[in-house]
């Protein structure tokens, strides 16, 4: 994991912010699907597809190119933020959005950090 806070290179601050988050969500990158499971704010599993009868609460769906731009070291305008991508319809949030919206700052940072695990695949 990348540092999440200048004073906290361990990433514990992000886990603290998400300490009430227990969820499995789907990250769809073009045709590739990843099931991301979070327990008390920590990612416990990133499971690449194909999946048989996957269960998830919400899904973040975007093309390969969109995620690559989002995970660039200095993203261009419109690809620098999940809600920016929602506005320009390059990202869709599907399913039950309640936990995503209730913990929006947490998920924005978490998904940015997931890039180092998913982008490299």
């Amino acid at each position: 994991m990348n540092p999440t806070h200048p004073n906290d290179p361990s990433g514990d601050w992000l886990a603290y912010r998400g300490r009430y988050v227990n969820v499995t969500f789907l990250l769809k990158k073009g045709e590739a699907e990843y099931l991301v499971t979070i327990h008390e704010g920590r990612v416990v599993r990133v499971q690449p597809g194909p999946h048989v009868m996957p269960r998830w609460t919400f899904a973040l769906v975007a093309g390969d190119d969109t995620w690559q731009r989002f995970w660039a070291p200095t993203p261009q305008p419109r690809f620098h933020d999940l809600m920016a991508m929602v506005k320009f319809k390059t990202l869709k949030v599907e399913g039950d959005q309640a936990i995503f919206m209730s913990n929006l700052l947490y998920f924005k940072e978490l998904v940015r950090q997931l890039g180092s695990q998913i982008h490299a695949r």
Binding site: D81, L82, A84, M101, S102, N103, L105
Partner: peptide, 16 residues
Amino acid sequence: PDVHGGEVCAGIVSGL
């Protein structure tokens, strides 16, 4: 009432 207003408002505008 079931979503913290301060958290969600900051989350909405953070990317701006």
